Lab assay of single mutants.
Amino acid sequence: HERALMVNRLQKLTRMLRVHPDPKWKQEQQELIKRLK
Rank of each mutant, 00 (worst) to 15 (best):
H1Y: 14
H1W: 14
H1I: 11
H1P: 12
H1L: 13
H1D: 13
H1R: 13
H1G: 07
H1F: 12
E2N: 09
E2H: 08
E2G: 07
R3M: 08
R3F: 15
R3Q: 07
R3K: 12
R3P: 02
A4Q: 15
A4L: 12
A4T: 12
L5C: 15
M6T: 02
M6N: 01
M6I: 09
M6V: 06
M6S: 02
M6Q: 03
M6F: 03
M6A: 03
V7D: 03
V7M: 15
V7A: 10
V7Y: 14
V7F: 12
N8E: 15
N8W: 14
N8K: 15
N8H: 14
N8D: 12
R9G: 03
R9E: 03
R9Y: 04
R9S: 01
R9P: 01
R9V: 03
R9A: 03
L10T: 01
L10C: 00
L10W: 02
L10N: 00
Q11K: 15
Q11Y: 13
Q11T: 11
Q11D: 05
K12Q: 14
K12M: 14
K12P: 00
K12I: 12
L13F: 00
L13H: 01
L13C: 05
L13G: 00
L13E: 01
L13K: 00
T14H: 10
T14K: 10
T14Y: 10
T14R: 11
T14M: 10
T14I: 12
R15M: 14
R15L: 14
R15Q: 15
M16V: 02
M16R: 04
M16W: 12
M16Q: 03
M16K: 10
L17V: 02
L17S: 03
L17E: 02
L17M: 06
L17D: 02
L17R: 01
R18N: 06
R18G: 07
R18I: 04
V19H: 07
V19W: 10
V19E: 11
H20S: 10
H20V: 09
P21Q: 11
P21C: 14
P21A: 09
P21E: 09
P21G: 04
P21D: 14
D22W: 04
D22V: 06
D22S: 08
D22F: 10
P23M: 03
P23T: 06
P23Y: 04
P23N: 05
K24Y: 11
K24T: 09
K24G: 03
K24C: 14
K24W: 04
W25Y: 12
W25M: 12
W25S: 04
W25V: 03
W25F: 07
W25R: 05
W25P: 00
K26Q: 06
K26W: 07
K26E: 06
K26D: 02
Q27S: 08
Q27I: 11
Q27W: 05
Q27R: 10
Q27D: 08
Q27E: 12
Q27H: 07
E28L: 08
E28T: 02
E28P: 00
E28N: 02
E28Y: 05
Q29T: 07
E31Y: 09
E31W: 07
E31Q: 08
E31C: 15
L32A: 00
L32C: 00
L32I: 09
L32Y: 02
L32H: 00
I33D: 02
I33V: 07
I33Q: 03
K34V: 07
K34T: 08
K34I: 09
K34L: 09
K34H: 10
K34N: 10
K34G: 06
K34E: 11
K34W: 07
R35T: 08
L36G: 01
L36I: 07
L36D: 00
L36H: 01
L36T: 01
L36Y: 04
K37H: 09
K37F: 14
K37W: 13
K37Q: 15
